[in-house]
Simulated scan of single mutants.
Amino acid sequence: MENQIVQLLFYCLPAVITGLIAFYFFNTHTKNEEGRRRYLLHKEAQKDILPLRLQAYERMTLFVERIRPANLIINVVPQSDDKDAYENLLIQQIESEFVHNISQQIYVTDECWNIIRAAKNATIQVIRKIAMSDKIETSGKLREAILNEFLDKNSPSATAISYIRKEVQELYS
C-alpha cells in the first residue's frame, strides 16, 4: 500500500510541476498582453490628444500675447480721458480673455497653467500699481506709463511664453 502511494506520487509530481510551470508562463503571458494592449490604447489616445494639447498651447500663447502690456495698450483704446475707466477697461479685457480660454487648462500641465495665471495676475497688478500714481491723471498718461514700465524689463507675458515653448518642446522629446 505504501509502495503504491509513493508510486502514485512519482507519477503525479511531474504533472503538478508541469502544471505550475504552465500556470506561471500563462500568467506572465497574460500580463504582457494586457500591458501591450494598454500601451497600444495609450498610443492611439495620444494621436487624438496631441493635436488638442498643441491647440491649447497655441491658444494660451495667443492669450499671453494679447495681455502683453504693449499689445494690450495698442488693442484696447481708451473711451475717455478718465484713467480709472481705462484701468478698469484694461483689467476687464484681460479677465475676459482669460475666461474665454479657461477650458484650456485641462490640456496643459498644472505648472504651466499656474505660470499663465501668474502672468495674468502680475499684469493686472502692474496696471493697478501704475494707475494709483498721483502723477497720472489721464488715460493717455496711463498708457504711456504702462509702456514705459516695460521698456527695460521683460513683461510677465514673456516669462509665460518662454515656459509654454519649453513645454511644447518637451512634448516632442
Rank of each mutant, 00 (worst) to 15 (best):
E2I: 10
Q4H: 06
V6F: 06
Q7T: 10
Q7H: 13
Q7L: 12
Q7G: 07
L8T: 13
F10G: 03
F10A: 10
L13Q: 06
T18I: 13
G19S: 11
I21N: 06
F23A: 14
Y24S: 12
Y24G: 07
F26D: 08
F26N: 15
N27L: 09
H29A: 13
T30G: 07
K31Y: 09
E34G: 13
G35C: 09
G35F: 12
R37L: 14
R37G: 06
L40H: 08
L41T: 15
L41Q: 14
H42C: 08
K43N: 09
K43A: 09
E44T: 15
A45G: 05
D48L: 11
P51H: 03
P51K: 01
L52F: 01
A56C: 05
A56K: 03
R59L: 08
M60H: 02
T61G: 06
T61D: 00
L62Q: 07
L62S: 08
V64Y: 00
V64W: 04
V64H: 01
I67E: 01
I67N: 04
I67L: 07
I67A: 05
R68K: 11
A70K: 09
A70Y: 05
A70F: 08
L72I: 04
I73K: 01
I73V: 11
I74H: 08
N75S: 14
N75I: 00
V77S: 05
V77W: 03
V77A: 02
P78L: 05
P78Y: 03
P78N: 07
S80Y: 00
S80H: 00
S80N: 00
S80V: 00
D81Q: 08
D84L: 11
D84F: 10
A85P: 01
A85N: 07
Y86N: 02
E87V: 03
L89D: 09
L89V: 01
L90Q: 04
Q92P: 03
I94C: 01
E95T: 15
S96N: 11
E97F: 05
H100S: 13
N101P: 03
Q104C: 06
Q105C: 06
I106T: 15
V108N: 08
V108I: 15
V108D: 05
T109Q: 12
T109V: 06
D110E: 11
E111R: 10
E111T: 15
E111A: 14
C112M: 10
C112W: 04
W113P: 00
N114T: 15
I115S: 01
I116L: 10
I116Y: 07
R117I: 12
A119D: 05
A122N: 14
A122V: 03
A122D: 12
T123H: 04
I124M: 12
Q125A: 12
V126F: 07
I127D: 02
I127C: 02
I130E: 02
I130M: 05
A131W: 04
S133C: 00
S133A: 13
D134E: 13
K135F: 09
K135A: 13
I136T: 00
E137R: 09
E137Q: 15
G140L: 11
G140E: 11
K141L: 15
L142T: 04
E144F: 11
A145K: 03
I146A: 03
N148Y: 09
N148L: 07
D152N: 10
D152C: 09
D152A: 14
S155C: 02
S155Y: 00
I161T: 06
I161Q: 01
I161N: 02
S162V: 00
S162H: 10
S162I: 02
R165F: 05
K166D: 13
E167Q: 12
Q169D: 14
